[in-house]
């Protein structure tokens, strides 16, 4: 069995050029999801009526449906919007939208358990020295929550990067789409997907290493 290494290398380079697309989706989704997830977690844990129940249903729904299904639903919404000519925007925005939703749901759970690990006395102490509740959260509770949640947060970021491989279903031209296109032209799908798996392997591995180092630096903070 022979492997067409020249072709593999050419797909590797072409797909690598599309890596920023995947990163863009992941980073924007994270920037949206981290504050909103934190807010949702605080709302849930404080048992704000109506909002916390609604959030629980939302989180449970997103967490138990396959991401590809949510993406397909959004894809058909996009298609009908395009056909009616309501809005025509780059499909990447739809990808960002749906990955943000998924990530908000996942991070809400992460932050919720992190919030529970911070004793309530911390907030009470902050209020006793004259801080408002908002200040208490911002200066005392949230920094600790981020410290506690960091390991899980990091692994959920790598999961998100892996999940962006599904963006091709939204007609976003990312790494996977390149493999599909190139594989389709030359009918050597195996090499095309091997090239993509190599990229993911390197990217996710490097990300994990970076997070490990990062965690070592911030570990003392989480212990306190």
């Amino acid at each position: 069995m022979n492997l067409d290494t020249d072709f593999l290398w050419s797909v590797f380079l072409k797909a690598l050029a599309k890596l920023p697309v995947n990163f863009e989706i992941a980073i924007v989704a994270l920037v949206v999801a981290i504050p909103l997830g934190l807010l949702a977690a605080i709302v849930c844990n404080n048992k704000v009526p109506v909002a916390s129940q609604a959030l629980k249903v939302f989180v449970s729904f997103i967490r138990s449906t396959p991401p590809i299904l949510l993406i397909l639903i959004i894809y058909y919404v996009k298609k009908s919007l395009d056909m009616q000519g309501v809005i025509k925007i780059d499909p990447i925005w739809y990808a960002i939208f749906i990955f943000s939703l998924i990530e908000i749901a996942l991070l809400t759970e992460v932050f919720r358990s992190a919030l529970l690990s911070i004793p309530a006395t911390q907030l009470e102490a902050a209020e006793s020295i004259g801080m408002t509740k908002l200040q208490g959260y911002r200066r005392i509770v949230i920094p600790q929550v981020l410290g506690v949640a960091l390991p899980v947060l990091c692994s959920s970021i790598t999961d998100l990067v892996k999940m962006t491989s599904l963006a091709f279903a939204l007609t976003v031209v990312d790494i996977m789409a390149i493999a599909k296109i190139e594989g389709g032209f030359s009918l050597s799908f195996m090499e095309a997907y091997l090239a993509v798996s190599l990229i993911y392997l390197i990217v996710v591995f490097v990300l994990e290493r970076i997070f490990k180092i990062f965690e070592r630096f911030t570990k003392s903070y989480a212990d306190k």
Partner: peptide, 15 residues
């Protein structure tokens, strides 16, 4: 851990 499942699925399916 580093591979997205859809990528591995395609690799297995074509390999």
């Amino acid at each position: 851990r580093c591979l997205p499942s859809v990528v591995l699925l395609f690799v297995v399916y074509f390999f």
